[in-house]
Amino acid sequence: MALQIGDRIPEFSAKNQNGNSFESASIIGKKPVVIYFYPKDNTPGCTTQACGFRDQYEDFKDLGAEVIGISSDSIASHEKFAQQYKLPFILLADSDKKIRNLFGVKSNLFGLIPGRVTYVADQNGIVRLIFDSMMATNHIPKALEAVQKMIS
């Protein structure tokens, strides 16, 4: 069952781009969070999206929010991707697609491409925005606007 607006972000754990364990409970329910699922490291749309979040990262931080990117790429792939593009936020390796399935993120293009969906949750861990679009650049302003509305 896919997450809906008003649902609480489920607890999950994964390895980040540095190979360290990440527990969602360390952030979820403590501050606003932007969790974005994307298809693949180092592809044009995903690189544009990641760099967009990077370029606006200070704006999210200034609002007290954290940004987390999730794909099924390996830790090594995430590490290289984060270093190459100087990504300051958390990238999680979801190789077994457990987190993607937990959120109910669907695949696109006959199931060939993992979906691109952004979730914005408030400081209580409640989903306030779900933005599902393969248009990579549209996710950043939508997420920022949602965070701004939550804290104003």
Rank of each mutant, 00 (worst) to 15 (best):
residue 50 A to L: 13
residue 145 E to A: 10
residue 133 S to T: 15
residue 109 L to F: 14
residue 133 S to H: 12
residue 131 F to G: 01
residue 94 D to Q: 02
residue 151 I to W: 03
residue 57 Y to G: 10
residue 68 I to A: 01
residue 79 E to D: 08
residue 122 D to W: 09
residue 59 D to S: 15
residue 61 K to W: 04
residue 116 R to H: 10
residue 112 L to S: 11
residue 137 T to W: 03
residue 133 S to A: 14
residue 126 I to G: 03
residue 22 F to L: 04
residue 25 A to F: 05
residue 27 I to T: 15
residue 61 K to H: 07
residue 47 T to P: 12
residue 71 S to D: 02
residue 66 E to Q: 13
residue 81 F to P: 00
residue 128 R to M: 02
residue 135 M to F: 05
residue 124 N to Q: 14
residue 113 I to R: 03
residue 4 Q to S: 10
residue 10 P to A: 03
residue 21 S to N: 13
residue 112 L to A: 14
residue 1 M to V: 14
residue 97 K to I: 05
residue 118 T to F: 12
residue 76 A to K: 14
residue 113 I to G: 04
residue 106 K to I: 07
residue 58 E to N: 14
residue 65 A to G: 08
residue 101 N to Y: 04
residue 2 A to L: 10
residue 71 S to T: 06
residue 143 A to S: 15
residue 105 V to K: 01
residue 53 F to G: 13
residue 62 D to N: 15
residue 46 C to S: 15
residue 127 V to Y: 08
residue 138 N to K: 15
residue 95 S to E: 12
residue 142 K to I: 01
residue 51 C to W: 06
residue 49 Q to Y: 11
residue 3 L to I: 14
residue 57 Y to A: 11
residue 138 N to H: 09
residue 71 S to K: 01
residue 34 V to K: 14
residue 107 S to N: 15
residue 89 F to I: 04
residue 142 K to H: 04
residue 44 P to C: 06
residue 48 T to S: 15
residue 38 Y to A: 07
residue 116 R to P: 07
residue 51 C to I: 15
residue 73 D to P: 05
residue 131 F to D: 07
residue 127 V to W: 08
residue 105 V to F: 02
residue 103 F to K: 09
residue 119 Y to S: 07
residue 92 L to I: 06
residue 147 V to L: 13
residue 140 I to L: 07
residue 7 D to H: 15
residue 6 G to A: 10
residue 100 R to Y: 13
residue 119 Y to M: 07
residue 105 V to L: 02
